[in-house]
Amino acid sequence: MFILTEIRDTVALQPHTFGFEPTEVIARELNKKYANRILQDIGLVISVFDLTKCGEGKVRYGDGCLWYKVEFRLAVFRPFISEVLIGKVKSQDEDGIRVTLTFFDEVHIDKSQLPAPCAFDSSRQKFFWAAQMEPDTKRTELMDSPFQERLYIELDAPIRFRVEGDEFYDDEPGPPKAAQGAKYDLTVSKRPPYRIFASIAGQGMGPLEWWAGVGQADEQNNEQMDE
């Protein structure tokens, strides 16, 4: 779920911080710059893990700062493909489910990644899984299934999912072109800079309550078999 990333950067320390231990101030400045930010193709930065190398502070012409060249390691949130994580259902619509991890909420589960057969109940605005039915049952048939047999995915329910992929999107507009002038195109929908695509198809995946007790039953069966 978390990784370490090595980065090199130059940090300026303001004169009023000269009284402190430099490494602590450097770490604080780096945290200010990187924490809770998304680095392209790296992930969501949590905080500085440690400083590995630190040069001598140098004064440049023009300001009173001390400039340090530092190498440091960041703790970064970047789950690997096929990793299993636990989150909470944030919202759902016809296209799929969105999951939040409290500190990160761009986890998307497409409707094709739900356990089959699955359908969206628009009157309740929730997906449900009809575990008793055949996997290729049509939606109309699913909607006729008795309510007791439907397993709904509730809002805020803790959910276990598998990471299937992720995508970065650089939203930097780049330098404005002189011919266009300063114009903002508001029609382009904003894409999040980092998204995770997940799946809950398969044994043991999905809301935790679906599977509560199933493992224990398995365990007992195993024990019985052993005996």
């Binding site: 370490l4 990333t5 090595e6 193709d41 790296i42 949590i46 905080s47």
Partner: peptide
């Protein structure tokens, strides 16, 4: 900013947890 190594190592949840506690 210059990235030396994008994935230097994996961290377990507990390591991140203790880092935050310390902070």
């Amino acid at each position: 900013m210059e990235i030396i190594k994008a994935r230097a190592a994996f961290l377990s949840n507990y390591e991140v947890y203790s880092l935050l506690q310390e902070m």
